[in-house]
Simulated scan of single mutants.
Amino acid sequence: MIDVSALRALRSVATLGTLAKAAEELGFTASAVSQQIKRLEREVGVPVLAPAGRGVVLTPAGQAVVDSAPEVFQALEHCAEAARSVADGAPQGTLRVVAFSTGVRGLLAPAVADLAVRCPELFLHISEQDPDQALHSVEAGTADLALIHDADGVPVALPPSVIQRHIHTDVGDVVLHRSHPLVALDRPLTVADLSGHPWVTSPPGTVCHQWFRRLFAGADGDPDVRHLIDDFSTQLSLVASGSVIALIPRLGRPPLRADLVALPLKRVPKREVFAAWRRSANASPAIRAVLAELGTSAGAGL
């Protein structure tokens, strides 16, 4: 009989390429992962890994084992979740949730208090991860539920073992000092309105910077970017000085000071937010409870 923990270790090594990285992901030492792999080789009777430079690669036999692993994990998880769902159905235990930072701020954090009241025996363990890493964690079994968003309008590719549900549409607004002349327009702002005004923006490589570049695509001249700041609270501090304006997603926006105002754009930048989990965990009362709470929070206009 193949040991499930050893099978999980092999799959992690196959994905990450080294025993050390697999150990970090699984929470073991590299020596412990090595021992698990050796135990697996004794159980199947053939080598499953071969050295390759500073890393390792799968042997043909190892690849065959890894290719079959998803069916094993899905069957085991489906069995466990079916048992939980036909008991009293009460969500309990710890649910490992991974999410991008503004998803934590805008969706998970507001849901935690109500969830604790409705499901007192359920505990969330939340870790911050970008969408690609979050999906890997769910697929690998090191997380149970992920919040992800599309990348500049392009959906994240889902592994076959993972399903998703749309839970929120996040949009960006322009934040200005209340004394700024654009506030007097009292209507959604156009690119022409924004031309010539100095900005603080998120750094290149972020979704908000992509929004910003797309906003000015085709406009005459480059926008006047004075500062590149990743933290939205810091951006708002600079906006409060009256010297710059900012484009900030609603999920990532802290409560505005009295001297700041958020104005909508005529060409609204947006991203779609999804919850993702393994198909084999579809019957999980814990996942269903969190999805229901996220739906309520998103519907409240966060």
Rank of each mutant, 00 (worst) to 15 (best):
P285R: 04
E121Q: 14
A9E: 05
F232E: 14
Q133F: 10
P91R: 03
V138D: 11
L228I: 04
D132Y: 12
A80M: 08
E128D: 06
T206Y: 02
T142P: 08
H125R: 15
V4P: 07
R39F: 04
A140L: 14
V207I: 10
P188G: 02
A9W: 03
I248S: 02
P204T: 04
W277M: 12
A240W: 10
S241K: 10
A32W: 04
I37L: 12
T201E: 12
V273C: 10
V207C: 01
V171F: 02
W277K: 11
P255I: 09
A292F: 02
E293W: 01
I37H: 09
A75P: 08
H209W: 02
S202G: 03
E139K: 13
Q129F: 14
G55Q: 03
V66R: 07
T296D: 08
Q35H: 14
S5C: 04
E24V: 11
E41N: 11
D67A: 15
C208W: 00
P155I: 05
R105L: 15
R178V: 15
G55W: 03
A6W: 05
L263K: 05
S195W: 04
R279T: 13
S34L: 11
T18F: 10
V154Q: 09
L247K: 00
M1W: 11
G27D: 05
Q74P: 01
V207S: 14
V66C: 08
T94E: 14
L291Q: 13
V225D: 06
R178I: 13
F100D: 11
P160C: 05
P160F: 05
P181F: 09
D130W: 00
A184E: 12
R54N: 12
E128G: 06
A289E: 06
H168V: 10
R213Y: 00
V225A: 06
V117W: 06
N282F: 12
H168T: 04
A286S: 11
P120N: 00
V33G: 05
R54K: 14
D259N: 15
L108P: 03
A292D: 15
S101Q: 12
A64P: 01
R271V: 11
G103W: 01
A116N: 00
H227D: 08
I148W: 08
H180L: 00
L16T: 08
R84G: 00
A50V: 15
A140I: 04
D231Q: 13
D132S: 13
P160R: 04
Q235N: 06
G172A: 15
D150L: 00
A9N: 04
G53R: 13
G17E: 01
H136V: 14
S202T: 04
I163G: 09
L247V: 02
Q63L: 11
